[in-house]
Write a protein that binds this DNA or RNA. Structure first.
Lengths: 240, 240
DNA sequence: GCCTGAAGTTGAACGCGTTCAAGACAGGTC
DNA sequence: GACCTGTCTTGAACGCGTTCAACTTCAGGC
């Protein structure tokens, strides 16, 4: 019953108890216990200073048992990843329901992401280190991450479709992915941002969003059509 | 006589031998030996599978001795970093002497970088992982890396000054750094690029350079002046 | 009630990066 | 020669992430 995929979607091999209740199997409880303990310790001591032995001890299980549920220490992070993703969507929901202006929607979604991430800034940095490794399944570009990645891209598709913005029809289908890429850029900036409360990242968002907004609108302009087409063709080339 | 800075510039505390010759002190030889051995093993087995014990054994010294010269296994990479930097500059030199067209100069310099990096693609990936950590002195954004970073930015200043391109005067002073940032983006893409011979990265360069060229030239256009100014003002904000 | 096999659990052991107290080796001074 | 003093060198030891053979638990079939 190992769960390796980054989705964390529990696809429950449930031992159908009498009623259709919570249905936590024997191991599921241990799994949750280890996970909660790990998350707590990560927040308290940081990722590097939290040892697997400490997690196991605090959770009251053997080290090997933690490895029965999680392939590695890094895989514990996957759960953090998935959680953040869900929280992000929830935090972005009100903005998406309220606003119709493209720039306002984009800014809202980006700020929501930073809101959700801020409490974990310190240990998210180390998390980022392992995510950066190209061979790691934790990398946002890896096939294993395609689930959360597509979910995130969908979010930016929603930013676009729910807005009143008029976009060059050739550019439009690629824009959600480009916006996601910009989002990755913001996260990268945020990770390196040491200003108090990551204020600089907020400034980046507030400065870059109007810029993106302007460029998107200009993409339909005669002088810029060639540029737009060049961008689109480059995207096509890189996709094969 | 430890050398911690990423510059690797030997600032020689030379025990002035009779003549002003090579001046390799006792330890300097050992240092070089360990370094060469490490580089060879990294290339042969990859970074992760090369142990400090193996490096020491192959170099014929004790483990602790390696740590006398290099703070950590990661610090061995710094040397690789510095070397690549120098090779890059050398490889770019002919292009900078020959070409005067901005796009040609930029493309030449970027291709030179990939030429130099290509042989080490496999282990550069793991190297990248440690460089990505924000707290690491190996990060290209860290204060410790300011030496090589500025050297690289200077290279792009040279790309610009030696070219016939006319650039918006407000944008000009920031352009070298922006080009360096684009270069970082190319490297990021290259690290993740699994296509044979990293052909995709070549396509990215060939596609993106004309785009950048066009945008730089358009920056002086009346319709785009506001955009240019917005970019410049954003840069100023983020610098404080 | 007993058996079977899958699920869950254990902790000693391995290999790794790294540290450090102890020693070996100069070159200079008297 | 004896002596220092700073540079260099050693290898056992530490703490870590991870593995694995052995063990326990428990539901279901007979």
């Amino acid at each position: 019953m190992r769960r390796d995929t980054v989705t964390g979607m529990t696809d429950q091999t449930v031992p159908t108890t009498a009623a259709g209740e919570a249905a936590t199997s024997r191991g599921e409880q241990t799994r949750q216990l280890i996970l909660e303990t790990a998350m707590r310790l990560f927040r308290e001591r940081g990722y590097a200073r939290t040892t697997m032995r400490a997690i196991a001890a605090e959770a009251g299980v053997a080290v090997g048992n933690a490895y029965y549920y999680f392939q590695s220490k890094e895989h514990l992070i996957q759960e953090f990843y998935a959680r953040t993703e869900r929280e992000h969507r929830t935090a972005a929901q009100p903005v998406l329901e309220r606003e119709t202006d493209f720039a306002a929607r984009l800014a809202g979604v980006l700020h929501a992401a930073i809101d959700v991430l801020t409490p974990s800034h310190d240990f998210a940095a180390t998390f980022f280190k392992t995510a950066a490794e190209p061979t790691s399944p934790l990398s946002p570009f890896s096939p294993e991450s395609s689930g959360p990645r597509n979910a995130a891209i969908d979010l930016y598709a929603e930013v676009l479709t729910g807005s009143t913005a008029k976009v060059d029809p050739e550019l439009r289908p690629h824009l959600p992915e480009l916006l996601w890429l910009a989002y990755m850029g913001v996260v990268l900036f945020w990770v390196y941002d040491r200003s108090p409360g990551q204020a600089r990242t907020r400034q980046l968002i507030d400065g870059a969003v109007p810029l993106v907004d302007r460029l998107v609108k200009l993409s339909r302009l005669r002088v810029l059509r060639p540029v737009t087409q060049q961008v689109v063709s480059l995207i096509h080339t890189l996709r094969h």
